[in-house]
Computed example of a mutant assay.
Amino acid sequence: MNKKLLELLNQINEKKTMVQNLVEQGKLEEAKEAKKELTEMQTQFDLLKDVLDPEGNGTAGPQNVTPVPNKEPEDSTKEFANAARRGFRNATMTEGSPADGGYTVPEDIQTRINEYRSAKFSLSSLVDVQSVTTNKGQRTFKKRAQQTGFAKVGEGAKITAKNTPQFERKTYEIDKYAGYFPVSNELLEDSDANITATLTNWIGDESRVTRNKIILEQLQTKAVTAMSSVDDIKKALNVTLGQAFKATSAIVTNDDGLQWLDTLKDSEGRYLLQPDPANPMQLRLCAGATIVPVYVIPNADLESDTKTAKTRKIPMFIGDLKEAIVFWDRNQMTLMTSNIAQIGTLNAFEEDLTIFRAIEREDCTVKDDAAYVYGQVSITDAAVTGA
Results as ranks from 00 to 15, higher is better:
25 Q>I: 06
136 K>G: 09
263 T>V: 09
301 D>L: 04
374 Y>S: 00
278 A>C: 07
107 E>N: 13
268 E>A: 11
81 A>S: 05
114 N>D: 12
287 A>E: 14
249 S>T: 03
173 E>W: 02
254 N>P: 09
86 R>A: 10
98 P>Q: 13
97 S>H: 11
256 D>R: 05
382 A>I: 05
384 V>I: 15
364 C>M: 07
240 T>Y: 01
13 N>I: 13
37 E>D: 08
378 S>H: 09
75 D>S: 14
349 F>L: 15
367 K>R: 10
204 G>M: 07
339 N>L: 08
145 A>L: 12
22 L>S: 06
300 A>Y: 07
194 N>Y: 04
136 K>L: 10
316 M>G: 04
331 N>I: 11
206 E>W: 14
323 E>R: 14
374 Y>G: 02
59 T>Y: 03
379 I>D: 04
27 K>R: 06
85 R>K: 12
89 R>F: 08
368 D>A: 00
356 F>A: 02
129 V>L: 08
103 Y>M: 13
56 G>L: 10
193 A>H: 06
258 L>E: 11
231 D>M: 01
351 E>W: 00
313 K>P: 02
333 M>V: 09
149 G>M: 05
183 V>F: 07
67 P>F: 02
133 T>E: 10
54 P>L: 09
150 F>P: 05
314 I>N: 04
369 D>F: 04
36 K>S: 09
49 K>A: 15
34 A>V: 02
262 D>Y: 09
221 T>V: 04
90 N>V: 07
140 T>K: 15
103 Y>R: 13
163 N>S: 14
359 I>K: 03
313 K>A: 14
302 L>G: 02
54 P>Q: 08
114 N>Y: 10
185 N>V: 13
202 W>I: 12
164 T>E: 08
154 G>P: 06
227 M>C: 01
4 K>A: 15
269 G>Y: 10
88 F>L: 03
76 S>R: 13
152 K>T: 14
111 T>C: 00
32 K>C: 03
351 E>Q: 14
260 W>E: 07
